[in-house]
Nucleic acid binder design. Sequence first.
DNA 1: AATGAATGAGACTTCATTCAT
DNA 2: CATGAATGAAGTCTCATTCAT
Lengths: 216, 216, 216, 216
Amino acid sequence: MAQPLSRVERRKQETRREILDTALACFGERGYHATGISDIAKRVGIAQGTFYLYFQSKHDIAEQVLDDLMARLSAALTELPPEAPATLSDYRAQAGRITDTLTRVFSDDPRAARFLLLQAAAIDDEMAERVLGFYDSAAALQSSYLQHGVDAGYFRADLDVEAAARAVNGMLLAAAMYQLRDPAPDAFERLTRTVREIIYHGLAGETSRHDARDGA
Amino acid sequence: MAQPLSRVERRKQETRREILDTALACFGERGYHATGISDIAKRVGIAQGTFYLYFQSKHDIAEQVLDDLMARLSAALTELPPEAPATLSDYRAQAGRITDTLTRVFSDDPRAARFLLLQAAAIDDEMAERVLGFYDSAAALQSSYLQHGVDAGYFRADLDVEAAARAVNGMLLAAAMYQLRDPAPDAFERLTRTVREIIYHGLAGETSRHDARDGA
Amino acid sequence: MAQPLSRVERRKQETRREILDTALACFGERGYHATGISDIAKRVGIAQGTFYLYFQSKHDIAEQVLDDLMARLSAALTELPPEAPATLSDYRAQAGRITDTLTRVFSDDPRAARFLLLQAAAIDDEMAERVLGFYDSAAALQSSYLQHGVDAGYFRADLDVEAAARAVNGMLLAAAMYQLRDPAPDAFERLTRTVREIIYHGLAGETSRHDARDGA
Amino acid sequence: MAQPLSRVERRKQETRREILDTALACFGERGYHATGISDIAKRVGIAQGTFYLYFQSKHDIAEQVLDDLMARLSAALTELPPEAPATLSDYRAQAGRITDTLTRVFSDDPRAARFLLLQAAAIDDEMAERVLGFYDSAAALQSSYLQHGVDAGYFRADLDVEAAARAVNGMLLAAAMYQLRDPAPDAFERLTRTVREIIYHGLAGETSRHDARDGA
DNA sequence: AATGAATGAGACTTCATTCAT
DNA sequence: CATGAATGAAGTCTCATTCAT
């Protein structure tokens, strides 16, 4: 039961994903506009016409590549232990995990980072809107974490949660961009550690600041 | 020292600048790839061929537009009172001025922001390199400010200055991007104030934290 | 003489006809070039590949659609009471029946008319040749009717039968084309009645023939 | 004064017309769909891109070719001695002149005839509408001639002028189509003479009209 | 016999750049 | 110096046809 995926259907899904991945690779490496459908097709090993059996247009695949990537990132950001951190220490641990996850997604496929950070917003007004919208939703997610911290008492009560969320994400964005040019793990590690320290000192209340030094 | 700029020569410079500004406008509004040389020429009021008397190619003008923009931003960031801030209070004031300057440059011409933040890096690998290089040099500049703060004693002695510089700039970047979609001054003001607070609390030493609350 | 048409064979013939009819419908509605094999297949409810089990190519089915249509029209024109009209009155009655038949064929399926009158000749040189050839054979048929009228004495003895046949058919053609845009039966009825009158007065009669020779 | 046609402007007009004529030739010979922009460009001796300096699209030039052709035909039909024929003889003479004119237009460029009669209506629904609309306006023009004949008394008073106009034009259409395959002037001459006779006898005359009413 | 995914040639169109005037 | 018509390479997309299943 529930095996509607015949062999051929599965093969189609595989091809679809292969095209999607290849497109992300091409877009990330050469850029959206410098990439031709023929480049993608050649690299996948299909005819140009075959491409259009899986995607309606070049713009369509760009949308899907972006959606797919944003979905993966959202999943990475969301699929954390559901229990919210109760103490600042817990928060620090969780923040570390989030950073690690993002790092992994982006270092696993640097082309994904290049595409999201450098290319996607330049494709189109609509696409730019999507990217900025993604930043917004990431800010909303970050907001909820910070708000929880305020409620739990380990962040300052007078924190402008929304604004702080954007600021925090900006630091993560800077880290991601930094990694684009200098993929050395060391430098990146130093940067993320500092970011966590800034968050810690910058957001925390007066009372909980004595155990500040960060090990990871 | 002489005045070799004959009237003709001056006129040429004016035209050149007019084309440059128009190109920035077009690139910011429609995007680099969606902008044709004919769009720029039409808007300036010159013939298409005339464009090539002033710039070698489309890529060439993109480079010059970017260089010009980055130069203006560098100038805005650098041309501050040369005497470095001696106290945290001074630093806060200076940080406010920098933010104000950046804000002014970008809100004066939102298309410049769109071009730098969304478009420029997608033109080309070389152009992406330039943009990332600009971020690097901005980080270096920020570094020098922060290092001065460490030396002056109002920032933590163990601060990883380089990493912190990138983090701080990341927050400014986030602010600039936020402004792209929601140009309401209020929201932006809230965001920059929070950024300054985070810097203040996040970077400062233990001793100077009692006068933290920020009014502006 | 046997019944070699097994159930399977009969089914094939049905499918073939279904495809043929659907193709005529599509060609008439959207035009030959705007119709894709996939349109026909989808409408019939078969796979695209299946189409090629019944017809060799798109051109092939167009030929067969046209042949089929012309055959139906020929049949309609020919399968009249075999006894030729003996008097002008009889002729008038027969002409009425022919007109009725043509009308019925075309109003039953306006797409057939659109295909024959507007589309078919544009497919191909060869197809144009077929259409014009059909007009020729229709003229030949009309010729034979008119010749009979001359022989029977109710058409002018000096009638250029071949030329008149083409002229008469031209009027019918005009009527058919008129019906394409304005399918109102009234207008069509008025037109065919007038055509019959013109034939009647234009071809018949002793009385008005004395000044017939034409100078220009 | 009033010499806004600089040398270059005149050259552009020439090129435009050259493309237009070549397009008519190609469309008439090979058909609209079989003709590529590259065919037209090659034959004119320009680059493909140049074509698009003069016409917006393939569809655009088809429209203009058709409009141009219909305008030429309208001019040919309309630019006759303005004094309407007063007698049936005059009418016969005028009808002869009209036929001659049409003949000339079409035999001068048989491809024009092929395009108008066989191709144009198959390009598009909109184009078909134009062609049928042209037939309508030709019918309206013919109507006015016939109406004049009725008013002047040399056509039957009870003539359904509109319907007769379409019938007459149908005969001309048949003549034009006949000429497509058999361009021999003799055969065409015979046909047009017969058409004029049918018009003459079919529309004129008091004497033979008493048994005209048609039941079906 | 039927399927429908795959093919690939070819169509239209755009646009950065050149060059004769 | 300015013009803008001309160029032609390159890109996206369609669709009749084939073939492995």
